[in-house]
């Protein structure tokens, strides 16, 4: 009996540090932040509770609204763009092409690089005076325009392009793995049926890639919500507030504007958006697992 108890004690001890991390850092810090968001803290935490005042202030802040709408524009274009480009690249590589490995390596390498690097490269490419635009115009293509980043209206699309460059490869890898897992006899059946290849991808393959598609879409969306470094490097939020994003808004109010209450309220809002996006996926997979367990 004594030995048994000793055995069951070591595993619990082994995961104790992680338990502490979860409770103190994850839960503790979250509760603290939540608490702060209901106070009128400025530079230092304050004990004066103001209810939802900070949230009201937040929703009244044009900068926050702009940051959220930028994030929505960026998020939709980035996630959809990555999915479409990634799927097309995967389908193309799936067609028994030569140099498949070389192509795959080239499509994915940007994913290995930091957002700062990505941002700086594209900032340089989109430099209106010395970058691609000037080069093309110098070559005689006078109307060529590629100075998205200096325009208040288009700068966010510049950020999207940089994001697509970095993120599409991830989708490509995941989709290609999914495609290679599909029964080859389906391809043969489709050939006997006379289904053109593009139609097979759209009507037969794509519907079967639901799970990896959902996984990679969640992954990309999480990345969108956390978007910070990319914007800092490529535009630093400008011009004006053209590429302001919530994560940057929070950082500014936290460390530069000494607006602790507002920053924490914004952080909680960001967290809520994650919950809203992830919860349905989680719930669906939970239900699916339950149903599976029920059937078995």
């Amino acid at each position: 009996m004594a030995r048994r108890q000793k055995k069951s004690f070591m595993p619990a001890l082994a995961i104790l540090p992680t338990w502490l991390t979860v409770v103190v850092v994850y839960i503790g810090a979250m509760v603290w932040t939540l608490n702060l968001s209901f106070t009128k803290s400025k530079l230092f935490p304050s004990g004066a509770y103001v209810g939802f005042d900070q949230y009201e202030r937040l929703l009244g802040s044009s900068k926050w609204i702009k940051a959220v709408s930028n994030l929505a524009t960026f998020g939709v274009l980035y996630v959809l763009g990555c999915l479409v480009i990634g799927f097309c690249l995967a389908a193309a590589l799936d067609r028994k092409v030569r140099f498949e490995n070389a192509f795959r390596t080239l499509f994915l390498y940007p994913y290995a690089m930091s957002f700062v690097v990505t941002g700086l490269v594209w900032q340089w490419l989109m430099n209106p005076v010395l970058g691609v635009q000037a080069t093309m115009q110098g070559l005689g293509w006078e109307s060529f325009s590629f100075d998205l980043l200096t325009s208040r209206d288009y700068a966010i699309y510049g950020v999207v392009i940089a994001g697509l460059w970095q993120g599409s490869g991830l989708v490509m890898v995941m989709m290609l793995a999914g495609m290679r897992g599909i029964d080859v006899e389906q391809w043969r059946a489709a050939r006997v049926d006379g289904i053109p290849a593009w139609r097979v991808y759209v009507s037969i393959i794509l519907p079967q890639l639901g799970p990896p598609l959902a996984a990679v879409a969640t992954l990309l969306t999480m990345g969108v919500i956390k978007t910070y470094d990319l914007v800092i490097a490529i535009t630093n939020g400008g011009p004006g507030t053209a590429t302001e994003v919530p994560a940057k808004f929070i950082m500014d109010n936290l460390f530069q504007r000494q607006n602790l209450g507002l920053a924490t309220a914004a952080a909680i809002m960001l967290l809520m958006s994650v919950v809203i996006i992830v919860a349905p996926f989680r719930y669906a997979s939970y239900i699916r697992a339950k149903r599976k367990a029920g059937v078995l």
């Binding site: 029964d183 006899e185 389906q186 043969r188 059946a189 050939r191 006997v192 006379g194 009507s203």
Partner: peptide, 17 residues
Amino acid sequence: EPKDRGIGMVFQSYALY
């Protein structure tokens, strides 16, 4: 092409969509 040969085929794994 397979579709033009006037054949129907049944596969081992059924290959249903």
